[in-house]
Computed example of a mutant assay.
Amino acid sequence: MRFLLVGEYSRLHNSLKEGLEKLGHEVIILGFKDGFKNFPVDFPLVRKWNSGILKKIRLAVLRLTGFDISSYLTYRQFLKNKSQFEQFDAVQLINENSFFCNYYFEKKIVNHIFKNNKKVFLLSCSDDYLNVQYNFENPQSKSGIQPYLEGKIKDKDNLSVLKFRTDSFRKLHQYIYSNCSGIIASDFDYDAPLKGNPKYLGVVPNPINTDLLKEEKLEIKDKIIIFLGVNRENCLKKGVDFFEKALQEIQKKYPEKTEVIITENVPYNEYIHCYTKAHILLDQCYAKDQGYNALEAMAKGKVVFTGAEQEFVGYYNIKEPVAINAKPDVAYLVEKLSFLIENPEEIKAMSKRARAFIEKEHNYIKVAEKYLAIWKNN
């Protein structure tokens, strides 16, 4: 069978493609390379007029005329190869705004996809209309909306989220929702907003290529090595400020026992090598479930501070922790880090549990089989 995967944020679609190909299917990825992360894409799109002086000109034209040059140029790139994106057995959109266009051009692109393929599915694995609406209506629920509501993030720095509260993106949501064959959530951060929705097909775990990501046996010699990879564009949304403050306290408390490695905005292939010698990886504070970075680090046997709330624990019937449930609380993070530093045997034990969990629940071929079943039966 032939499948088209639209969009790439975290290597999710690349790992799914690898799993589907192992099962004998043909898979094409269309989309952007996600900025500096530079993920592989079969048909790469480039966001134009999106930085420097050209971005300022684009925004000025947009304010004056309502015409978005960047969206138009993305649409032109799609049209150039549109025949390549037809006659697939199933298409999966990674988001309601997979092409980063305004309503007019995004609808034109997805309309072509709907009309020229057998089935189209929508993946909820980042901000979208229903997810953003739910998080604003439930501010006590762990999400990247919380730091915005606390005034840490300005409107102009949160447009990728706030756009889903506008009428145009509500209309785009309704259009995609009414035409797609179903919606899949990648983890429990996206499950609650979809519960009870007739098009919701459930959670399918993120696929992790456990053949490529080998387990790295943890050896603890003189120091506990802690890694923090910073993406400045969304660091407040991830709670990186809490991690940075906690690390300052840990370095004062355990100067002879710890080593801290911090990287900033590095490409994916470089990023996963940066934390090779780390024992502990700090991922994010505002999640209920693990994101892709956390899962890949767990596959390599790291102890990861990330989302591991009760929804996750209950669903997978976790008896002993496979990750540390991070919270936006410096004292809490210092307490959890201190325990691990003073009990290195628990680091080794959790490392093994993390790898075993990924192999059981996130193996890319097993996950690809779950996607296939959903695509065939809906």
Rank of each mutant, 00 (worst) to 15 (best):
R11M: 09
R11S: 14
L12C: 02
K17N: 07
L20Y: 01
L30R: 01
K33D: 11
K37I: 05
K37V: 02
P40I: 01
V41R: 11
P44T: 12
L59F: 04
R63K: 14
T65M: 00
G66K: 08
S70M: 07
Y75S: 11
Y75N: 09
K82W: 13
F105Q: 06
K108S: 11
N111G: 15
C125A: 14
D128M: 13
L130T: 12
L130V: 11
V132E: 09
N135E: 10
F136Y: 13
K142F: 11
S143Y: 01
K154N: 09
D157R: 12
D167P: 03
F169E: 08
K171N: 15
Y175T: 07
S181V: 00
I183Y: 11
I184V: 13
D187I: 01
D187H: 10
F188I: 05
D189W: 02
D191E: 12
G196S: 03
N197C: 14
K199F: 11
L213T: 03
I220P: 12
L228K: 06
L228I: 04
V230L: 10
K237W: 10
K237A: 15
F242K: 01
F242S: 03
A246F: 06
Q251R: 14
P255G: 13
K257T: 07
N293F: 13
A297G: 06
A299N: 12
K302T: 05
V304C: 12
F305S: 04
E309I: 03
Q310F: 02
V330F: 04
L337Y: 05
F339P: 00
M350T: 04
K360R: 14
K366W: 00
E369Y: 03
